[in-house]
Write a protein that binds this DNA or RNA. Structure first.
Lengths: 270, 270
DNA sequence: GATTGACTCTCCAGTTGCTGGAAGCCGTAA
DNA sequence: TTACGGCTTCCAGCAACTGGAGAGTCAATC
């Protein structure tokens, strides 16, 4: 017969835990004196080892209690083991989901920083590479765009391969009934019926990175048009806005720091 | 301004949870009337969305609260995201460990059943295949064997490829100072200095499956020796016991149901 | 026999993120 | 007026402990 302190060392469980197990009926001491002192025997020690083994597999205590009173051989608990297995597999799946969501966000953020650092805030003429996108064409008001991106983001998940962008199929600014298409560059074929998956053409383009709130985009467009007129460039439709930095996944951030690259392909008319 | 019920629908959070978040200081309603009624505004809604997003990543509430009051942009929480990432990765690792331990046990049990079903309880002459083992030779009393198996099990882990067995290097039964070697068949090279890793030779053997407690093994040995004498077979050392079914990982089980195959290679003396 | 120090006891509270219930107030419609 | 729904606070419970307070017990020593 061991006192609780001795048994604690033998079983490798804290005294507090032993008292708790007693209270829960999981491990009942062989003898309890009138003064409340608990004394444990070798059968208790065996039970304690079973408990420890099952707890390392994170079996709940009440299940362990019932196993201890109903089972005497490993084969009796096979069902419980398979059930536990399912549960653990489910947990792993769930945590893996979380992990990949975090990784996506971090990846996204890192990339944002890269493209952002590489972009000047002046009018540039440069060559755009063709890019595979999935887009969702919508008609309405510009603020509706958020919902479009929401849908795209949810469905595309980890297929997203770059900063979100928007194509404007109108030749001029429209408050209502505008025709635009939020889209994401993607890394492989996607088959969602609502989305238009295609390759955006590359080519010579003039671009300008607009830093600040979307409400001031007009001024940057004006600059671009002015430049195009000077250089006698004819700009092709649709125009594109690449959201180098906009509202984040969690926080809106500061609109004064938003960065949006406006891109116009130059129509070759030779 | 929305009442708590309306806001609950808008934010997709139960009323109880909103009150709880208020109490915890995570989401404080824009206005609280003298009668205690809570009213929420659009800023609260934004905060609620941030909270929901961060909760799906299982951020703790107090961390969310501090993020909400200190951060306004996604880049502010990059550190927290990476920390969360670590934490989640740790959890996955841990659960994966548990999963593989469960799988090992299930695998073990399934195999036990197979070998058990395939074994007759009569003296048999059969051919044994060579088998790669890791063994731990010990001198002492038989009950010490348990510790040896414990060590082997812990170190070999998922390399174990079959039921445990024991080699007896003595030519006769010894209570004390016996020379025996608990071992496991293994699936690949193992380099633990204390263990002897080698191939057990195969060959013609006589075997008998002993069903019952280890204490009665003597009777089965006697049967075997008698048979060997009748047939004028000379038995080679070490003899082997294969523990088809013994005490389990968790429970001891019923000794009357233990099954142990005794194997003696037949010394070829042509 | 008294005292000391280690050991043990019970009871309560706190952890995390809610969830449920009881009892009671508030506002409105029939 | 009364019913009803919505709102309030407060308390309890989950799971598996952990920590602390305050008090009783044991064995040995002085």
């Amino acid at each position: 017969m061991l006192s609780i302190g001795e048994f604690s060392k033998a079983a490798g469980l804290p005294v507090k835990t032993l008292r708790f197990y007693h209270e829960k009926g999981v491990l009942i001491p062989a003898r309890v004196e009138a003064n409340g002192y608990r004394y444990y025997d070798s059968r208790n020690l065996e039970a304690a080892q079973v408990i420890v083994a099952l707890r390392t597999l994170e079996f709940p205590l009440d299940e362990i209690a019932s196993l201890l009173s109903n089972c005497s051989s490993d084969e009796d608990i096979l069902d419980h083991l398979t059930a536990r297995r399912e549960e653990v597999a489910r947990k792993i799946q769930q945590q893996t989901d979380i992990l990949s969501r975090i990784d996506m966000t971090l990846e996204r953020e890192r990339e944002t920083r890269m493209t952002f650092a590489a972009s000047a805030s002046e009018i540039e003429e440069k060559h755009l590479e063709p890019v595979l996108i999935a887009g969702l064409r919508m008609k309405g008001r510009y603020p509706e765009m958020g919902k479009g991106f929401g849908q795209l983001g949810r469905k595309l998940g980890r297929k997203i391969a770059g900063a979100g962008m928007c194509l404007y199929h109108d030749r001029e600014h429209r408050e209502e009934d505008a025709d635009f298409e939020p889209c994401f560059p993607i890394s492989g074929k996607v088959t969602v019926p609502e989305f238009s998956v295609r390759e955006l053409p590359g080519g010579r383009a003039i671009t300008l990175v607009h830093v600040g709130s979307y409400e001031d985009l007009g001024r940057s467009y004006a600059k671009l048009f002015e430049h195009a007129e000077e250089k006698q460039l004819s700009l092709s439709c649709p125009s594109r806005e690449v959201f180098l930095k906009g509202p984040g996944v969690f926080f809106k951030g500061d609109p004064a720091k938003y960065a949006t690259e406006i891109q116009f392909l130059i129509a070759d008319n030779e």
